[in-house]
Each structure stands twice: as structure tokens, then as C-alpha cells.
């Protein structure tokens, strides 16, 4: 039980327009595990990641992360829980356009707790971008932007990393660089949940889940 980082019990998500995105889904993810989530478009992958990432709440069911029943938390508590436990990597990177690479990482520190420039530089070093600290996102390649996004996700040392198609917008070469980084994080002991459409990438996971119509197939 102790190494169940994430324990999902019978969750459903019904959106306001009555779309049933998740349907009575249960799932256990262990500490340090890499889980690949696959499935057709509209099957509820992103919805599931939103719930695990404390970005959205399920309509029914129970989610326990690191021993905390997050389905009982209010909005502000969710925000605090998220910043302590979850790192997010997005397909669209979502860097703040007017801040430099370094500042984008520091911003995550600021909203987490305190800013430490050295730690931020180290995070960017880890993703091989210490020579691009002062570049604004518009002056970075897509791969570089995704690496800044990864640096931002890991700077606060979350135990769980969630990635929604992190290589979806990248060419193969850049995609491989990013996947290598994620592999390294996995080896360091991070729990990783990664959504992908690419079966090759899916195979990198310790476990592969196939989602269809909001259910694990």
C-alpha cells in the first residue's frame, strides 16, 4: 500500500455538456513507475491527467496521491498540493512569452516557494540549455522550448511528472532528446505518467494503459 503513489477509485468525469469523459475508472500507480497512456482521440486521456494533476476534479470517485485524498481538497488546497507534488510537461510548452528561459523556470520557483537562481540554472543545465538562459521563448526552437518546460517542471523537485504528448510538436531528433531527459528523470526515481499516440514511445513505459471511451481497456 505504501508504494501506491496514486490510487484512483471509480472516478467518473462528466462535463457540463454531459460528455462522459471518464467512466468509472480505477487505477493504481506505484512509486517510480512509468505509465504510458494511449488511446484514440477523445478517449479521456487528457481528462485523466487533469484529474491526477489536480487541475480538475472528477465528478465521482476518489483519488489518493501520496496518501492525501485530493478529491476532498478545495481549490486553494489543490493548488498547494499540486505545486508540492506534481510537475507538468505540456505539448504546447506554455512558456510565458515575455520572460527569458531562466525567468520562466524561476517563475515556477516563485509560485512554489522562493526563488533560487542557482537551482534554476542547474535545472536548465540538466536539460542542456545553460547556454540559452536569457533567450525569450520566441528565440528558442520548439525542442528547446520543451526542454525549458521540463526544467520548469522539475525545478521544484516534484515526485510525480505528468506529460501530455511531450513530443507531439517535435521532430524525431528533438523528440528523442526530450524522451532521453524523461528517461533520466525516471531513472532518478520520479513517477512518470505520459500520454502518447506513438506506440514506440508507449513501449518505453513500465506499464501501458489503453483508454477507450473513458475506460481502461
Amino acid at each position: 500500500m505504501e508504494n501506491h503513489v496514486i490510487d484512483i477509485k471509480n472516478i467518473s468525469k462528466i462535463y457540463e455538456n454531459n460528455t462522459r469523459a471518464l467512466d468509472n475508472l480505477s487505477l493504481i500507480i506505484k512509486q517510480g513507475e512509468w505509465t504510458s497512456i494511449m488511446g484514440p482521440s477523445g478517449s479521456g486521456k487528457t481528462t485523466l491527467l487533469n484529474v491526477i494533476g489536480c487541475l480538475d476534479s472528477p465528478t465521482n470517485g476518489k483519488v489518493i496521491i501520496n496518501g492525501t485524498e485530493i478529491t476532498k481538497l478545495n481549490r486553494n488546497e489543490l493548488t498547494r498540493f499540486r505545486r508540492e507534488n506534481i510537475g507538468l510537461i505540456f505539448q504546447q510548452y506554455h512558456l510565458v512569452p515575455y520572460l527569458s528561459a531562466l525567468e520562466n523556470v524561476m517563475m515556477a520557483q516563485y509560485y512554489h516557494s522562493v526563488v533560487n537562481e542557482n537551482d534554476a540554472i542547474n535545472a536548465l543545465k540538466k536539460v542542456g540549455l545553460d547556454h540559452r538562459l536569457d533567450h525569450i521563448p520566441a528565440h528558442l526552437s520548439g525542442g528547446e522550448q520543451q526542454r525549458v518546460c521540463i526544467a520548469r517542471a522539475l525545478v521544484n523537485e516534484p515526485r510525480i511528472l505528468l506529460a501530455d504528448e511531450p513530443t507531439g510538436n517535435l521532430d524525431q531528433k528533438n523528440g528523442e532528446v526530450v524522451l532521453k531527459l524523461i528517461k533520466n528523470l525516471h531513472e532518478e526515481g520520479h513517477t512518470i505518467i505520459l500520454i502518447t499516440h506513438n506506440p514506440q514511445i508507449g513501449k518505453l513505459g513500465d506499464k501501458q494503459l489503453n483508454l477507450v471511451d473513458g475506460k481502461i481497456n
Binding site: G53, L55, N76, T79, R80, R82, R83, L88, H94, V96, M107, A108, Y111, H112, R152, N156
Partner: peptide, 10 residues
């Protein structure tokens, strides 16, 4: 949304 997702409270 990004700021909130990385932990910014309202």
C-alpha cells in the same frame, strides 16, 4: 492558467 498550474494562488 500556467501560473496557476505551477502553483500560483489567486
Amino acid at each position: 492558467g500556467l501560473m496557476k498550474s505551477v502553483g500560483a494562488e489567486n
